[in-house]
């Protein structure tokens, strides 16, 4: 039955289809400016980074040539690289648990009936709004050997003067402390919000059951805060790659690379030693780690929260 419908063709007249096509065109038009920017400043640089990492470092005499995975091999043989990876693992391993634990304690206090609560909240949160560069300057006062406050306090107890930033054993720890100081108050906010969604009946019920405060905290509050903790954890992981500005002020990665972190080393390779291929290979390494983190976030954590 070849009626008039078949002659006109379905695509031309079906108003639903026309509408759908119109919406698709509008959708792509709306997306295009952002997609263009993302392509230029994220997608293309990611691909280009990989491409760059496959070429040798060009000098005036020897132009850059394709060397495959040679830069990666060189990287794996570079002791400084391993030193920096180890430093960064230590940095993450120290700052993440410490800032999460302190954030939780801060939130519990800031959420309880306590005198001077608004001062306490403000004090905890204030470092969040300061630049890392400024934080570095503020902490100089604590660390500098000749007049640092830490040494002043130490001297009261007869401790010897320590050059906190100037010796390999303590430099990275000094860096970690600044990061924890900066992050804890930020993470506290998320815990604070989560704590306020816990119904007060739970606490009453626990009290009637005769549960101690510690049991209530461990059995009820901590499990309920689990999604928040995971969210904070992912953020803290990202920050352990990203937060390196204070290195520029406090240690510049030294002494003898003892406080150097990966992103700082990438910067140094690219903009101080002008070895772009090495920096690119390291960047790929970081991108893979971040990609794994993203996979963890989407595959494991997203079962709880749904972006719908």
């Amino acid at each position: 039955m070849a009626g008039p419908r078949a002659i006109q063709g379905p695509a031309m007249t079906d108003p639903l289809k026309l509408e759908r096509r119109r919406r698709a065109i509008h959708g792509w038009l709306l997306l295009s400016p952002a997609l263009a920017m993302l392509t230029v400043f994220a997608l293309y640089p990611s691909v280009a980074t990989f491409w760059t990492s496959l070429w040798s470092r060009g000098t005036r005499r020897n132009p850059s040539e394709f060397i495959g995975l040679e830069n990666y091999r060189a990287l794996l043989e570079d002791p400084t690289f391993w030193k920096v990876v180890w430093n960064n693992l230590l940095y993450a391993g120290v700052t993440i648990p410490a800032s999460i634990a302190i954030a939780l304690i801060m939130a519990l206090w800031a959420n309880s009936r306590i005198p001077a609560r608004s001062f306490i909240r403000t004090a905890y949160f204030t470092p969040t709004v300061l630049p890392m560069i400024a934080a570095g300057n503020l902490w100089l006062f604590f660390y500098t050997p000749s007049f640092g406050i830490l040494n002043k306090i130490g001297a009261l107890f007869g401790a010897p003067s320590v050059n906190w930033l100037g010796q390999p054993d303590t430099a990275l720890w000094a860096i970690c402390i600044v990061t924890i100081w900066k992050e804890a108050g930020f993470f506290m906010v998320f815990y604070l919000a989560a704590l306020q969604t816990i119904p007060p009946d739970l606490k009453e019920a626990a009290e009637i059951e005769g549960a101690s405060r510690w049991t209530y905290l461990r059995r009820i509050v901590l499990p309920l805060l689990m999604p928040t903790t995971l969210f904070i954890f992912v953020n803290a992981m990202i920050n352990s790659v990203k937060l390196i500005d204070h290195l520029f002020i406090l240690t510049k990665g030294g002494p003898s690379d003892s406080s150097k972190l990966i992103l700082y080393y990438i910067w140094e390779n690219a903009f101080a030693y002008f070895d772009r291929p090495a920096a690119a290979a390291m960047t790929i390494f970081v991108l893979i780690v971040l990609g794994l983190l993203a996979a963890f976030q989407f595959l494991v954590l997203e079962r709880r929260t749904h972006y719908q």
């Binding site: 400043f41 994220a42 293309y44 640089p45 990611s46 280009a48 980074t49 760059t52 990202i238 790659v241 990203k242 992103l263 990438i266 910067w267 690219a270 903009f271 772009r276 920096a279 690119a280 960047t283 970081v286 991108l287 971040l290 990609g291 983190l293 993203a294 976030q297």
Partner: peptide, 13 residues
């Protein structure tokens, strides 16, 4: 997860 900070090498170019 692909932070602009990490892509400094090529973003500069």
């Amino acid at each position: 997860f692909i932070l602009p900070e990490v892509l400094i090498v090529e973003n500069y170019r």
